[in-house]
Amino acid sequence: MARRHKIKIKNAREIDLMRVAGQTASEILQTVAKAVTPGITTGELDQMAAELMKERNCKSAFLGYRGFPGYTCLSVNEEVVHGIGGKRKLQMGDIIKIDVGVVVNGWIGDNATTVPVGDVSEEIKRLMAATEQSLYESIDKARAGLRLAELCGAVEAHVKPLGFTVVREFVGHGVGRDLHEEPQVPNYRPQGKTPILEPGMVLAIEPMVNAGTGAVKFLEDGWTVITADGAPSSHFEHTVLITDGDPELLTARPREATPEILGIQA
Rank of each mutant, 00 (worst) to 15 (best):
T251Q: 10
A49W: 09
A21D: 12
Q30C: 13
S234Q: 06
H235A: 01
A129I: 01
T113S: 09
E198Q: 15
N187R: 00
L52P: 02
Q184M: 11
A231G: 13
Y136E: 15
T258Q: 14
D244R: 14
A149Q: 07
E137I: 02
I196C: 13
F164G: 02
L162E: 13
W223P: 09
I9E: 00
V32S: 08
P161G: 07
T37K: 15
S134G: 04
G22A: 12
A266I: 09
A228Q: 14
I196F: 11
D119I: 10
I84S: 08
G22T: 10
G153R: 00
T114K: 00
A142P: 02
K217Y: 08
K97E: 05
W107D: 01
H158E: 14
E78I: 00
L197K: 04
I15S: 01
Q191E: 15
I96V: 15
R126G: 06
K125V: 12
Q191A: 14
S138K: 00
E79W: 08
V32C: 09
A21L: 12
L148S: 03
V240Y: 04
G83T: 05
L151I: 02
N111F: 00
L250Y: 12
G192T: 03
E55S: 14
Q47Y: 11
H235V: 01
H173Y: 05
G85Q: 06
V117E: 02
A266Q: 08
P186F: 00
E181N: 00
K89T: 07
T72C: 14
S60Y: 03
C58I: 10
R56Q: 14
Q191S: 15
D221G: 08
T113M: 04
A204F: 12
L17R: 10
T258L: 12
G245R: 14
P207H: 12
P259M: 02
I95H: 05
I242T: 05
G43E: 07
R19D: 05
T42E: 02
N11F: 02
T113E: 08
E44F: 01
A257V: 04
I7W: 11
L148H: 05
E169R: 06
T224S: 09
K87D: 15
P186L: 04
F170D: 05
D119R: 13
K87S: 14
V175Q: 07
E150H: 10
D99S: 10
V185T: 06
V166W: 11
H158L: 13
E150P: 01
Y65N: 12
E256Y: 13
T31P: 04
T24L: 09
G93I: 02
V167I: 15
P259V: 02
F164S: 05
V209G: 01
Y188I: 03
S121V: 01
D94Y: 06
T41Y: 11
E237D: 10
S138G: 12
E78K: 15
E79P: 08
Y71E: 10
Q265V: 13
N11A: 05
N105D: 15
I9Q: 03
Q191L: 14
P69T: 01
V104Y: 07
H235K: 03
K54S: 13
E78S: 14
K8I: 10
I84F: 11
P259S: 08
I7E: 06
E156N: 02
Q47F: 11
P161W: 08
T42C: 10
E237C: 14
G106N: 08
L146V: 05
F170P: 00
S26K: 07
